[in-house]
């Protein structure tokens, strides 16, 4: 009885928390169907309105929205695959091989985690500009591949990987590459996906590198368009269109994230970020 009452209290707290965390997302969805007159009215209007089409048209007319979404997809997919592979391999190597420089390299990576991204922004831009990588997908993909965070997460996961399995495979005469692809990757799959999802979201949301690297509007990614709606052009801020951009770029990706997350139940984010 007492236990039940306590649970009611916990549920109420959790649900209030949940609502507070969800409201902005729900609002994105609703407001994407409204226009400025409704959004900026004196009353709270949470009803679906009829302006979604008009808002999308504004995005298509002014910002080549489909092209922008496509750019974001290309950058995110390529970046995620390459970065996940590279960091998984690095994390596994640092966890499971003894070699000269292991400790040194690992501490360099750890040290680099506390360097603010801003410190490397300008020189990275200059280097990329020299080799002609600005205004290209590569200009946004490359700077985020060597994610120290992802290596750290993967090393943590790989640390707990049973060494005996690797030894046994070696005795059977398996090559090192084969061990990685045939034994390590399948067993660490949920962890790789967890780390990969974080990398994925990192690419999808990346803002400062595209902001600096991309000047050609054909190569814009979603966050740049959102920024431009809030700041560019001489029109008044079209809140409805901004919400339409958010509803169509943030929500589907979050749903994908949640779906992947639930599909690989064993994935425990906390183990990685500890």
């Amino acid at each position: 009885m007492k236990q039940n009452k306590k649970h009611v209290g916990i549920y109420i707290c959790l649900i209030i928390g949940g609502i507070l965390f969800l409201i902005p997302y729900i609002y994105m969805l609703i407001a994407s169907t409204q226009n400025n007159t409704i959004i900026l009215s004196k009353t709270i209007d949470f009803r679906i309105s009829k302006y979604f089409g008009k808002n999308m048209k504004y995005l298509l007319d002014n910002y080549q929205y489909f092209r922008v979404i496509w750019n974001s997809i290309v950058v995110t997919v390529i970046g995620t695959i390459v970065s996940t592979f590279v960091t998984t391999l690095a994390g596994y190597t640092l966890a499971k091989y003894k070699f000269v420089g292991n400790k040194f390299i690992f501490s360099m990576i750890m040290l680099s985690r506390m360097i603010p991204g801003f410190a490397v922004l300008i020189p990275t831009f200059l280097i990329f500009s020299k080799v002609g990588l600005t205004n290209s997908y590569a200009g946004i993909i490359l700077p985020l591949i060597a994610s120290a965070n992802a290596v750290f997460i993967m090393k943590q996961y790989a640390d707990s990987f049973p060494y005996e399995l690797i030894e046994a495979a070696r005795i059977d005469g398996a090559k090192e590459g084969l061990i990685f692809f045939r034994i390590v990757v399948p067993l660490l799959k949920p962890n790789i996906i967890a780390s990969g999802m974080l990398i994925f979201m990192g690419y999808w949301n990346s803002y400062i590198y595209p902001l600096v690297m991309i000047s050609d509007s054909n190569k814009f990614v979603v966050p740049l368009v959102v920024r431009n709606i809030t700041q560019a052009s001489q029109d008044d801020l079209n809140y409805g269109a901004m919400m339409a951009a958010l509803a169509t770029s943030v929500l589907p990706i979050l749903l994908l994230y949640v779906w992947v997350q639930s599909k690989f139940k064993s994935t425990e984010m906390s183990a990685g970020i500890k």
Partner: peptide, 13 residues
């Protein structure tokens, strides 16, 4: 489309 206030930011790189 470059906002009047953002033109320097856009040209600097």
């Amino acid at each position: 489309d470059v906002a009047p206030t953002a033109i320097t930011q856009k040209l600097t790189p």
